[in-house]
Structures are given as C-alpha cells and as structure tokens.
Design a protein around this nucleic acid. Structure first.
Length: 304
DNA sequence: AATTGTACCTGTCAGC
DNA sequence: TGCTGACAGGTACAAT
C-alpha cells in the first residue's frame, strides 16, 4: 500500500470529531502519557500533563483541520493530525503494546475515568498536541489565520470571489490556502476542481463568474460528500473508533493517473502544481476559459 | 507584501 | 538480494 497515507482534511477531522464525541463527552483524564515529547508544542510536557490531569471533556469542536477539545478549567486541547495522525478511543480493557505491531507509532495516551483511553498515533510525527486557554484560541498561530468554514454561513460566493479575483496564483494553490477557506487538502482540492470542471493550473484572476460559482458549489458539495462518506481511507485513515471511511470508492481523479475518466473517454493525467501532485481529466478540465473554447474541444497545441 | 523553497518524517516502490 | 533515491504532503519558517 501507499506509505501510510491518510491525509486528514476537513471531512476526516469532522468524522473523527463526530465519532469521538460520544466516547469523550463527560469523561475526565486520570493519566497522561507522552512517549514522544516533541509532539507537545508551545509548552513543556510537564506543564501539559499537569494542566490536563483531572480535567473533563465538555465538547469537541473543529476548525478547518484542527480538532479542538473543550475541557473544564477553561482549557482547549488542540490536535492537528497533519499527514498521518490518528486520534482513537480505546474502550476499557484495550491492551496497547508499543513494541512493534500496529501501535509502534503511539506517541500519547490519555487514560479516562471509565477505564477507556484516548490515543494519539502518528507514523510521520508531523502531527502535534497543544493546550491553550479557550479564550486564547484566536491567538494560536495557524488557527488564528484560518479562512471561513467552507460549509458555514460565513463562506459566501462573494467571499470566494474577493479572494480569487485579481490573484496570479493557480487555482489549485488558492484552494490549498487555508486563509482563503479552511480545511481543504490535496485530495479534496483535486476532487473539487474536477467537479467544477476547472484545470488545476487556471490562474485565479482568469476565472469567469460562472466558473467561480461552479467552484463555490463544488467546494461545498464535495466536502459534504466526503463527510457523508465518513472520509477517505486511501490506506490507513481511520475515524475515532478505528473505522475506515468510504470516500476512496468515489474518487474521480485523485491517484487515478492513467485510468479512464468516469465521464468521458479521456485518461486521467498528473502534474505538479506548487510542488504538489495534481490529478485531472484533460478533457473535462481544459486549461482555458469557458468563453475561449466555446464548450467544445481541448486546446490544440502547435503541431501534431 | 506576496511568493517560493525547504525542513520536518517514515514507509513504499522503482530501478539498478 | 540489497541498496539508493524519489515520492507522498500540511504547515512553519526562512529566503527572495
């Protein structure tokens, strides 16, 4: 399989939030074990443990790709899964062996007052945990600069137009910019562009009003489909109960290089945009404005 | 100020 | 067979 990819984006983090909520709400923390100190950011491991001990989970929130566990004492436990992080609830009696096997990348464990445990697991060690006072959430770097929630009311077509119009960057890069809209990563960016019939290298400023409207609708519909399918498990993403998602069965372009487009006779292509692999259908997503190709063919290059 | 590049990581896989 | 290098990518930070 593919190198432990899980790529938690908005739909995956939302699925983790929903699946952990019934297990954590009301539980208090009786022990904190940190096996890899560097995953605790912005405060020492001792401070982290000391402040968490005895606190109770009130509610789980999500902002973009950040999971925000609201605790008693005014604390918020912030979790970012980055590429390969997993946050999983283990019921009472679960035995975890860190020496080899499935749990060799276990970096933190929070024992709960019902005998259960919340574990943080991360093959590539990019993910992190931190603890802040809830009122200081807007000062945490990364979190404070996030754009609107794409499925919320603040994210309007007008906002998207303001952020894309006049920009020289490619639309794929703009979709991945968390300050424009929060929570989109490489998988959903490619799927959104396919749904919107936009080539990933289209320049932001070149998008017509129709194209922006398609992009806006596609952002919302594709992310909602991802949530409805409980996320994308390419190889090892799992939710808070260790269950895989289903959206990998509905991917149109991501990691389908060389395979047939599901809607035309063309073959899915891959190229690098801003250092990231981008998958697209050259016929469904031509690299020209709508009004230039008049809805017909691919742009014809010089000689054939 | 906006944009680009690099570091951080480990497992997989193609190529020799 | 076993080694090497490319690759996967979200974000922080440095550099341009």
């Amino acid at each position: 399989m593919n190198g432990g990819l899980s790529l938690p984006e908005l739909p995956e983090v939302e699925t983790v939030r929903r699946s952990l909520t019934p297990h954590l709400t009301g539980r208090s923390i009786t022990e904190v074990q940190i096996f890899l100190p560097k995953i605790v950011r912005y405060l020492t491991v001792d401070e982290f443990k000391q402040q968490l001990l005895g606190q109770r989970f009130l509610k789980l929130d999500r902002r973009g790709k950040y999971l925000l566990a609201r605790l008693t004492g005014g604390w918020t436990l912030v979790v970012h899964l980055k590429m390969t992080g997993r946050l999983i609830y283990g019921p009472p009696g679960l035995v975890i062996n860190r020496d080899g096997g499935a749990w060799c990348h276990l970096h933190a464990a929070f024992s709960l007052d019902n005998g259960g445990v919340l574990v943080f697991h991360d093959l590539r060690q990019f993910g992190y945990l931190t603890l802040i006072q809830t009122e200081d959430c807007l000062s945490l770097k990364g979190l404070k600069d996030l754009g609107p929630e794409p499925l919320g009311q603040e994210f309007t077509l007008n906002w998207l137009e303001k952020k894309v119009q006049g920009r020289k960057a490619k639309i794929k890069q703009l979709l991945l910019d968390q300050t424009i809209v929060a929570g989109i990563g490489n998988i959903y960016a490619d799927e959104i562009l396919y749904a919107a019939k936009l080539h990933p290298e289209r320049i932001g400023a070149s998008l017509t009003a129709d194209e922006l409207a398609r992009l806006y609708q596609s952002i919302r519909s594709v992310l909602q489909q991802g949530i409805d399918c409980r996320g994308t498990s390419i190889s090892d993403y799992v939710d808070g109960e260790g269950q895989p998602g289903e959206f990998q069965n509905y991917l149109q372009v991501y990691r389908r290089t060389g395979q047939d487009c599901r809607h035309c006779a063309s073959v899915i292509q891959r190229l690098k945009v801003g250092g990231r692999s981008s998958h697209y259908c050259p016929q469904c997503q031509p690299n020209v404005c709508d009004h230039h190709h008049g809805g017909t063919r691919l742009p014809r290059s010089s000689t054939d």
